[in-house]
Simulated scan of single mutants.
Amino acid sequence: MKFNFACAAALSAAGFASALPSWFAESQDVTTFDDATPVPGKNPLVFCKDHDLQKDIVSITNVDLTPNPPESGAQLAIQATGIIHEPIQEGAYIQVTVKYGLIRLVNTKADLCEQTEKADLKCPIEKGILSVTKEVDIPKEVPPGKYTVHAEVFNADDKPITCLDATVTFGGHAADSEL
C-alpha cells in the first residue's frame, strides 16, 4: 500500500520534492510532536524535535497540502517551496518509517534522486530556490486510523537535508489530525 505522503512529506519538507513517491507503509517508533516546530503552510508536517535545522541542506519555506489533512480515496495536491543551500547529489537518500497506531508498517531506505524523478527533478539538484507541485492519488483502501510518518533525508555524504514528522488520521475528522 504505497502512498506518496511520506516521501512527499520528506521532499516537500526538504523544500523541493514535496512531490516524493508514495509510501504510507513505513514507520518507526511512536513519536509525539508536542514541542516540534511546524513546517510553514497548510500541512500536518513538523520538523523533527531534536533536529538542528541550521545544519540542513534545504530550508523549507512552505508546504501546502490539498486537502489538508489528506483523505483516503482523494487526490492529494502538494505544493512545496524551499531554498537549497548546496547541491543535492546522486546517492542522496531518504529513511522513512510509517506506523499505523503502534504497528510499524514500513521502515525503508530509498534513493532520493530516484524519488525526485517522479516530481520531474534530476540530481544533482543545484543551489537556489525551488518550488515543486505534485499530485498523488491516495487509495480509498487506506484503513481508517492514525498514521505516523518519520522521514530523514540525507545527501550522498550523509549531511542532513531535512527531517520531518507527521501524524494523519484517516477515516476521522480534520480535527483528528495533528497539524
Rank of each mutant, 00 (worst) to 15 (best):
C7P: 03
F154Q: 05
K55W: 06
A92M: 05
D176Q: 06
A36T: 05
A166Q: 12
G15C: 00
K55S: 13
F154K: 11
D52C: 00
F24S: 14
K122D: 10
K146C: 06
F5E: 08
H150Q: 12
K55Y: 02
T162Y: 01
V149H: 12
K118C: 04
P144T: 00
A74N: 13
F154D: 02
P44M: 05
H173A: 11
E90L: 02
A8V: 04
F5Q: 13
T133N: 13
P144K: 03
S22I: 11
I103N: 15
T66M: 10
S59A: 07
K49C: 02
L76Q: 10
L121S: 01
A13Q: 04
V98G: 15
H51K: 06
C123Y: 04
H85V: 00
E71M: 10
L65T: 03
K122Y: 11
F154G: 02
Q115A: 14
K134I: 00
D34Y: 14
C48Q: 08
T37C: 02
K99T: 08
I161V: 12
A166V: 07
G82H: 03
V153I: 09
D120Q: 11
D64S: 03
A74D: 13
D29Q: 11
F16W: 12
K122R: 11
E86C: 00
P160S: 03
S59D: 09
L179E: 07
A17T: 00
W23G: 10
F33M: 13
L105G: 14
D29I: 04
V132Q: 15
V136N: 09
D50F: 04
K159C: 00
F170Q: 12
H150F: 06
D50N: 14
A80H: 00
A6T: 13
L53M: 07
L112G: 07
K127M: 10
V106F: 15
G41W: 08
V132R: 10
L105S: 10
I161M: 03
A17N: 05
V153P: 02
A36W: 04
G172Y: 10
I125Q: 09
A92K: 03
G41H: 07
T81Q: 14
G171M: 03
K159R: 11
K49V: 06
C48V: 06
P124D: 01
E117T: 09
E26D: 12
G15P: 00
N43G: 04
F5C: 07
L130Q: 14
D56N: 06
F47L: 03
G128P: 04
L105W: 08
S22G: 11
T32A: 09
V58W: 02
T31K: 15
V106N: 15
Y100E: 07
E117C: 02
A110M: 13
G145P: 01
A175F: 05
T32D: 14
K140T: 08
F3L: 15
C123L: 02
V46L: 09
A80L: 02
K49F: 01
M1R: 14
P38T: 05
T97W: 11
I88H: 06
F3P: 10
H85A: 04
D176T: 04
L11F: 12
K109I: 12
S22M: 12
A80K: 03
C123T: 00
Y93N: 11
V96D: 02
L11C: 12
A151L: 01
A8Y: 00
Q79A: 08
T66L: 13
E71S: 02
P38D: 01
